[in-house]
Nucleic acid binder design. Structure first.
Lengths: 412, 412
DNA sequence: CTAAATTTCTCGACTGTCGAGAAAAAAATC
DNA sequence: GATTTTTTTCTCGACAGTCGAGAAATTTAG
């Protein structure tokens, strides 16, 4: 059954509304808050004083007194209200970032991952270690860290921070909540990397199109293939999901994939698959663990100079992507596709196959070709996605936790 | 930006909550309403008296006075509060049902569709005609009809009642809102047939499992192939969608489909496809417009007696379904699959192929085989799905329309 | 006929939003 | 420098919603 509603909930929702406005548009004055949220000035007053008393937002110290009239006082998040640690796990390194409540980067370092030591056990100790280090370095109390946001390629559980499968650890699952809950009171969330790219691009898209934005897919090309989908739900909330696209079946009984199955999309469009095709290695050869990008650059260069076999290798990869995307569009509505990742440098070679694959399906014939868009700088998008998601969640959690209401009742 | 919240909205939501409880559990007394909705007795009182004053619900006249204490008075929907017309379009007929606000069937008739006259124009005049007839027969004022709920196989728009593509009318689109708005003030909604099956089965499932229910897919087997997906969104609302599954690409460059594309799932698993395979007709033969089920029964009978070719025909159909489903599960989470439609009578012959197709994919190897379940009596499920969806919408619309609040302010 | 049980209704307290107008504070004007 | 204008913020009273507690209603048991 659905949950009942109450006046308290109304207040919570509207408080989140104020915090969200602050997040999206930076420091805002009373009047602007009222404009953005459509709440009356009086309500904004009550909410801001509550949030201020709870030490969640603060009035900016100084501001240029432009224009006449009573000068506006800008509200902004209190940076020390809480902290977020972002952990980005990639195949060769793990990046740790400490971010304050206002979204400002405080500290960051990267740990190389040894290619040989690949057990989950050693990874976890490394993770715990690095997390301890990053709070120690900035001399923060660890309970000021309200959230730890982790991302990896692979298959993540939607409701719990459990990594089900990843190209790095294979079927060795990691339950990050279980691993960290003894040392950390922070909430632990996990996202697929491309899911977070989708979140970031989706936010950009909404800023541009406003209410017209409906859905968007992000496709990440690299050693493995990732897909993230973001859709505007009712009430304008963005719902993000991470389909297991790279390991969706492309061709029954097809080439061997790193995951152990046969015929996955990745086994045709991943870097190792392109390599395999270019060198005419049999399709059931165990794929290379890691392919240096220089290797692929060479293949691409010769393809661009007319090498038949290499052109076909890229074309076949594009085809697998295009057909796979057409299947995605069959199952959802048609939507624009943002392509990121290191593989975008071969976009010219992939495009033909992608288009051809897409064109084959009924949906595309009905609705027309979806918009394809290349977005470089995947790492920035991933980080932005982390911030978007984690900080929005923090806002909600803080309001829901009741600190605001409690303080309020004490002071009368 | 998200929408602001207010006390009015709270009331609306809680009113809908009361109406929903009434829908799901039949006539209820004050106390039971309070239990189901978790609202306090006082709040239930206010809401019910408002709804009663607005002539949306009423107290039951008579009831058996079992047990001691003050006898409970049961509330139920006023049947004359509004009416719903359900239109179920199938390939050979169109069924019209008139239903009152409490969900009781008042009138029903079926119009055969001539196989030869297949233009959209003549269909639309037939539709308008039949709608007029059904209100005339029951002597209702047409503005008492608050909603017209239509279903068809094929591709429907999610936000508007527009039929984008259907096996019956092909690419000739029908915008039902445009077609009916001059004669009817009722809200017109359109759903894919299997989407409504999913809605009905999803409701059953939730009654059984409660909060454990997460998602479910309904697969309809027949001349064409349909898929509906229902998922529990946050706040417990069911989100239903109708992927274009039948025309998702099964095999690149494969058999010719009725839709004009090649290699659709339907071109392997639809009735005509099974027929085509059984008689070894070339895959690019224009598929039969309609296959009598007796024909397929014969093929099935001989398959069950060991006919190699016919066994393979069904197995290939199952394989297309299984592989397609595996792709669906790759893109969503794993979920149980309810199979309906006339094709279920060949389930024994299809099962092997379905299982094999599912087993091939990465997800199934990870999460295990999804639960498969055969549900006969598709027509009842479709109709139930219509009622579930349309009546729930009517409840919301009525509350949101403000009749309750208005009356309230007048009478003070 | 009275007591017990059970359901429904009512009242006052509390919390929320809103519109209007008062208060604050700086620039413009005389 | 005093006054007016302009702009922003704050405050007050009205109104709407939920809740808990207890009163009122009504039937059965004894």
């Amino acid at each position: 059954m659905l949950a009942k509603s109450s006046t308290e909930l109304v207040r919570q929702k509207n408080s989140v509304l104020v915090l969200t406005a602050l997040r999206r548009h930076g420091p805002l004055a009373h009047t602007e808050l009222s404009d953005f949220t459509k709440l009356s000035s009086a309500t904004v007053s009550v909410i801001t004083t509550d949030l201020e008393r709870a030490q969640i937002i603060e009035k900016a110290e100084q501001q240029a007194a432009g224009g006449r009239g009573r000068p506006r006082v800008l509200f902004s998040q209190r940076r020390d209200c809480g902290y977020l640690i972002v952990v980005i796990i990639s195949s060769d390194a793990v990046q740790y970032s400490l971010v304050d409540y206002a979204g400002r980067l405080i500290d960051r370092f990267t740990e190389e991952r040894q290619q040989n030591v690949s057990g989950v056990g050693s990874f976890v100790t490394g993770l715990r270690d690095a997390l301890n280090r990053i709070v120690a370095r900035s001399r923060l109390s660890r309970d000021k860290v309200l959230m730890i946001s982790i991302s990896s390629k692979g298959l993540v559980e939607s409701s719990e921070p459990v990594l089900r499968w990843s190209p790095i650890f294979g079927r060795e699952q990691i339950d990050f909540a279980a691993v960290l809950h003894d040392e950390w009171s922070a909430k632990v969330i996990l996202g697929n990397e491309t899911q977070l790219v989708a979140a970031a691009v989706g936010r950009q898209e909404e800023n541009k199109k406003g209410r017209d934005f409906r859905a968007l897919a992000a496709l990440s090309l690299g050693h493995s293939i990732g897909l993230g989908i973001v859709r505007r739900g009712e009430e304008g909330k963005h719902e993000i999901s991470a389909p297991n696209f790279g390991h969706m079946l492309h061709m029954s009984g097809g080439g061997l994939c790193r995951c152990g199955s046969r015929g996955c999309i990745e086994a045709y469009a991943g870097f190792y698959a392109i390599l395999r095709a270019a060198f005419d290695v049999p399709l059931d050869t165990i794929p290379a663990k890691f392919v240096p990008i220089a290797e692929l650059d060479k293949i691409a260069a010769s393809a661009r100079q007319g090498s038949r076999r290499n052109i076909i290798a890229f074309r076949q990869a594009g085809l697998a992507l295009g057909i796979g995307l057409s299947r995605v569009l069959s199952l959802h509505e048609s939507m624009p596709i943002a392509i990121t990742g290191p593989g975008t440098r071969y976009y010219d070679l992939l495009l033909e196959g992608i288009s051809e694959g897409l064109a084959e399906s009924h949906v595309v014939r009905m609705e027309g070709m979806p918009e394809l868009r290349v977005m470089a700088d995947e790492p920035t998008l991933v980080f932005d996605g982390h911030l978007n998601r984690a900080l929005a969640m923090m806002d909600e959690d803080i309001v829901r936790s009741g600190v605001v209401a409690e303080l309020n009742s004490q002071t009368g």
